[in-house]
């Protein structure tokens, strides 16, 4: 089918979304044009507004519409504990499942020297300034349990230790409801090394 140039352009643009290949892009484009032109209009406006309106919180680097995000501005949250995470999606995960009441700091990635991502790219200067501020007493390192995540956690733990701030790392181990037999050896080794007293 020789589609119009604009339609081709639309399908190519839709493919920037995760999980969208040529076939789904075509379905989406045709759906928007044939059946839901209003929806397409709303999508355009919302997308534009979101692009213009959403930036990064000056304190925690999480996505935010305001200069200081809702977490950082909330006076009821515990300002003495700071949880360091890799992505905004991690903030949502922790917020939905842990009941953590402190503040967050989002790195937007992890140290990855071979990809050119160093401390500056992760905003660690902002984090250092935050630690120097004196409010934080415990820093919870919740970077991913990958080699790069561990390197990042260690690097930040060093920054905390120099300032006499307690640095803790989230535990890794066997998933709840999991079976030891099917857990990969790295995870199982970690779980063993990090075993705890039965209380």
């Amino acid at each position: 089918m020789a589609a119009s140039p604009l339609l081709n352009q639309l399908m190519a643009a839709l493919r920037c979304l995760p999980g969208v290949g040529p076939k789904s892009a075509q379905r989406m484009a045709l759906h928007l044009l044939e059946r839901d032109r209003d929806g397409a209009g709303r999508l355009v406006e919302t997308l534009r507004a979101a692009l213009e309106g959403i930036g990064h919180c000056r304190q925690c680097r999480d996505l935010s519409e305001t200069e200081i995000c809702a977490f950082c501005a909330n006076p009821r949250r515990d300002r003495t504990s700071l949880c360091v995470l890799e992505t905004p999606a991690d903030v949502l995960a922790v917020e939905q499942s842990t009941g953590f009441q402190g503040l967050y700091f989002v790195l937007m990635g992890h140290l990855s020297p071979l990809d050119g991502i160093g401390p500056a790219e992760l905003g660690l200067e902002t984090l250092e300034a935050r630690l120097d501020g004196g409010e934080v007493r415990e820093i919870i390192l919740a970077t991913n349990p990958t080699v790069e995540g561990e390197a990042t956690a260690y690097y930040i733990a060093e920054l905390a230790r120099e300032r006499g701030i307690r640095a803790t790392r989230i535990a890794h181990g066997v998933p709840l409801g999991g079976e030891l037999e099917y857990v990969d050896s790295g995870t199982l080794a970690h779980a063993f090394a990090g075993r705890r007293e039965v209380s």
Binding site: E150, A151, Y154, A157, G186, A189, A193
Partner: peptide, 12 residues
Amino acid sequence: GRPVSLPPHRVL
């Protein structure tokens, strides 16, 4: 075999 687990200060 058993994974080599580098201690955090050696990962770099």
